[in-house]
Simulated assay, not measured.
Amino acid sequence: MTLRKSAGSRAAHALERRIPMRDFSRSLPMALLRAREAVMKQFRPSLRRHGLTEQQWRILRALSAVEAIEVTELARVAFLLGPSLSRILRDLEARQLIDRRTAKDDLRRGVVSISQKGLKLIELVAPTSEAVYAAITQRYGAQKLAELQDMLAVLENKLATLEATDGGPSESER
């Protein structure tokens, strides 16, 4: 007698137990990940041609919008964990795409800015990036894209004020 179940038997068993959750394909995190992947798929070829990863591009774009920024703030705005950011900054600094220094008021804090070489790379990638945006806009619709960006901003803001829970009672309910 074997303890392994056939694929059909496992599928039947899964149907029998009916987990009280929405269908996996309809979960918001999965829908957002699929949409992100569809969007990033359009940008990746250009980034690869310029020897950039998505995360490196994200950092360069964030840095191009500011004079300088503390490393901890850069991690927050670029949605990167500290260890990942440290490695990426090392790589970008080795390529002379960014400049790093310590904060004048606190030598423990690092400050980062984009270098002239980094700005030139942004200028080189920008036309292709904007062409991708134009293609997405043409395919999806300018109004719908603007509405989507507005809706995502509202969702982000509403959830930012919502206390994360593990499903149990909140601190105030205990």
Score class of each variant (00 low, 15 high):
residue 1 M to Q: 08
residue 2 T to F: 13
residue 2 T to R: 11
residue 4 R to G: 10
residue 5 K to G: 11
residue 5 K to R: 14
residue 6 S to E: 13
residue 7 A to S: 07
residue 9 S to G: 09
residue 12 A to N: 07
residue 12 A to K: 10
residue 13 H to S: 12
residue 13 H to E: 14
residue 14 A to D: 04
residue 18 R to N: 15
residue 18 R to P: 09
residue 19 I to L: 15
residue 20 P to Y: 06
residue 20 P to F: 03
residue 22 R to W: 04
residue 24 F to Q: 07
residue 25 S to N: 11
residue 27 S to G: 01
residue 27 S to E: 04
residue 30 M to Q: 10
residue 30 M to I: 09
residue 30 M to T: 04
residue 31 A to N: 04
residue 32 L to S: 01
residue 34 R to T: 05
residue 34 R to E: 11
residue 39 V to G: 01
residue 40 M to V: 00
residue 40 M to L: 05
residue 42 Q to F: 00
residue 42 Q to W: 01
residue 44 R to K: 08
residue 45 P to C: 03
residue 47 L to W: 02
residue 47 L to Y: 05
residue 47 L to D: 01
residue 51 G to V: 12
residue 52 L to Q: 06
residue 52 L to C: 03
residue 52 L to M: 13
residue 52 L to R: 01
residue 57 W to F: 14
residue 58 R to L: 12
residue 59 I to T: 04
residue 60 L to W: 02
residue 60 L to Q: 02
residue 60 L to T: 00
residue 62 A to T: 08
residue 66 V to Y: 10
residue 66 V to L: 14
residue 66 V to C: 11
residue 68 A to D: 02
residue 70 E to L: 12
residue 70 E to D: 13
residue 71 V to T: 12
residue 72 T to R: 13
residue 72 T to H: 11
residue 74 L to V: 06
residue 76 R to L: 14
residue 78 A to I: 03
residue 80 L to P: 01
residue 81 L to H: 07
residue 82 G to N: 10
residue 82 G to F: 09
residue 84 S to C: 06
residue 84 S to K: 08
residue 84 S to F: 03
residue 88 I to H: 05
residue 90 R to I: 08
residue 90 R to V: 06
residue 91 D to H: 13
residue 93 E to A: 15
residue 94 A to R: 14
residue 94 A to P: 10
residue 95 R to L: 15
residue 95 R to G: 09
residue 96 Q to G: 11
residue 96 Q to S: 15
residue 98 I to W: 01
residue 99 D to W: 12
residue 99 D to M: 14
residue 103 A to D: 13
residue 106 D to F: 02
residue 108 R to W: 04
residue 111 V to T: 06
residue 113 S to V: 08
residue 114 I to F: 13
residue 116 Q to C: 11
residue 118 G to D: 03
residue 119 L to R: 15
residue 120 K to F: 14
residue 121 L to H: 00
residue 122 I to F: 08
residue 126 A to L: 14
residue 127 P to C: 04
residue 127 P to Y: 08
residue 129 S to L: 06
residue 130 E to D: 12
residue 132 V to K: 00
residue 135 A to P: 10
residue 137 T to H: 05
residue 140 Y to W: 03
residue 141 G to M: 01
residue 141 G to V: 01
residue 141 G to L: 00
residue 144 K to N: 09
residue 146 A to F: 07
residue 147 E to H: 09
residue 148 L to M: 13
residue 149 Q to L: 11
residue 150 D to C: 09
residue 154 V to S: 10
residue 155 L to E: 05
residue 158 K to S: 09
residue 161 T to R: 15
residue 161 T to V: 15
residue 161 T to I: 14
residue 168 G to L: 11
residue 169 P to G: 07
residue 170 S to K: 11
residue 171 E to W: 15
residue 172 S to M: 14
residue 172 S to K: 14
residue 173 E to Y: 01
